[in-house]
């Protein structure tokens, strides 16, 4: 049985490898459209993590909004700007300058250390006690199939005003987009 339990962590590692490879591909690819499409892989594998954690609603939102919507907008923005010549220049520029590479490395190292410090400094034992999950059963046992409707219940009762404000926000975005694109066309 121990062999089987060690096998069960394999999907996690597979997803991690896919995420890291797709993210690296996105950063290192000089072709911006291809970089945008590798971003789909990164977002999709992150939603796979959410599925592993039984957070179905978050996973589906991740796919619908990030893997489809945001990537679509990024790719369209790239095709709109036609950055082909600039992109090749950009790659030369970034990797030619040593000071900029060092600066990027320092920023990445600082971000990584900050994130790992925050994760390490959490009192995970108290959190697991408060949420009622034991160490090995993890969060998966707490989540039942009514999870999505629980979100809906909170959204339509306690957080009703923010829920309705979201639609106002979306309306503002819609009107703003139409006005901005109108300005560009008349030019």
């Amino acid at each position: 049985m121990e062999f089987l339990e060690s096998l069960s962590s394999i999907p996690f590692y597979v997803l991690s490898v896919i995420t890291v490879l797709c993210s690296l591909g996105m950063i290192l690819n000089p072709n911006l459209v291809r970089a945008g499409f590798t971003l789909i892989g990164a977002f999709a594998s992150i939603s796979g993590f959410y599925f592993l954690l039984s957070a179905n609603f978050v996973a589906v939102s991740q796919v619908l909004i990030y893997a489809v919507g945001i990537v679509l907008v990024i790719v369209f923005a790239v095709m709109l700007c036609s950055l082909k010549d600039e992109a090749s220049k950009l790659q030369e520029y970034v990797f030619a300058s040593r000071s900029k590479t060092v600066f990027a490395l320092v920023i990445s190292a600082l971000t990584f250390s900050l994130l790992s410090f925050v994760i390490q400094s959490q009192d995970w034992e108290t959190i697991t006690k408060l949420t009622g999950a034991t160490k090995y059963a993890s969060v998966i046992d707490m989540v039942d199939e009514k999870y999505t409707s629980q979100i809906g219940y909170l959204m339509l009762n306690k957080y009703l005003l923010p829920f309705e404000l979201i639609s106002i926000l979306l309306l503002v975005v819609l009107v703003g987009v139409i006005i901005l694109s109108k300005k560009n066309i008349s030019k």
């Binding site: 609603f57 589906v60 619908l64 909004i65 907008v73 959204m155 975005v173 987009v177």
Partner: peptide, 17 residues
């Protein structure tokens, strides 16, 4: 694309409902 995203987000918020 932007119009699609707006109604995509709307769908996501209607799903728990």
């Amino acid at each position: 694309a932007i119009l699609f995203i707006i109604f995509d987000v709307e769908f996501v918020f209607l799903m728990p409902w």
